[in-house]
Amino acid sequence: MTTTATVPARAPRLAGRRWQDLWTAGLPAAGLALMLIVLRLVEPGTFTAEGMSLVLRSSTPLVLAATAQLCIIAVGDLDLGVGSALGFVNVVIASWLASDPVWGWLALAGVIGAYMAMGALIHVRRLPAIMVTLAASFVWLGVAMLVLPTPGGMAPGWLARWAYWDTPLVPLPIVLAAAVAIVASLILNRSRLGMIVRALGSNPRALDSAGRSSARARVAAYGLAGCFVVLAGFAVTANTASGDAHGTSGYTILTIAAVILGGARFSGGVVAPVGAVLGAITLGLVASVLTFLNVSSDYQTGIQGLLLLVVLAGRALGRRSR
């Protein structure tokens, strides 16, 4: 019991910390507001519950996947395999979960187990996380192709019903995004587990001297990420209503962009679940706005890149002026 007493559940707040919080949370929020204004000007028709639901539906998988990436970034690592892992979950849901639920659920539990094993391997052998997760992405893709060699399959009936559930007042994608943000904040920023995870990211030596197992913290962070990957896979399958091993490879880079847009730091320790969720929605909206504006697809990637730079430059300016 003495060890727990030395580690308070909440880190004491330093003066000015609140402003820092506000700035990190405010910037992605401002970005989102800006995108909403642009969307309103470009396509006023989307500002109904139904329209919002349609526009935001595509960003739900990214919201969940970005939260998974956030858990890994929290310990100072980076997951380059999240896109392929998502593809595996997607094909398992679209092929096994309907036909063979027992094996389907076991495989999904296996994803979480594999993430934890990956965390353990990285920790024990002190391997660079980006290489292990990259190698894992090969394995995910290969196994997914074994499960479902060509795109196809079908989402289980209950998932399809859920995906088109008309929530009262607020559209479902917004409810989901808010729920993800709240749950992730509670786990990462308010719980003891989250504090240990963040401590591993910012000062592993202090964690060790506080008598905590840094191995357990890393495994927990990876397990948490695995859970969010599985949830993101459900969201992907609900949107596409089918399975495709290759369909989600682009998510890896997008999740990193969303997390950074949201204000997390790569060195670990500083995480912003709300920011990551807002960042993911913003990135999704950028794609919608560009499509509505009839911007040639040639420029879309470039504009997303520029937007990323503008936001980050803004944050750097904010840091410097203080």
């Binding site: 040639d298 470039g302 980050l312 430059a313």
Partner: peptide, 25 residues
Amino acid sequence: LGVPPIVATLAVGFVLFSISQRLAH
């Protein structure tokens, strides 16, 4: 701009890719 290298180089890459797309088309 004080941007972390991993994002900075990615964002620059996105911009370069747009130029390549123009050239390709």
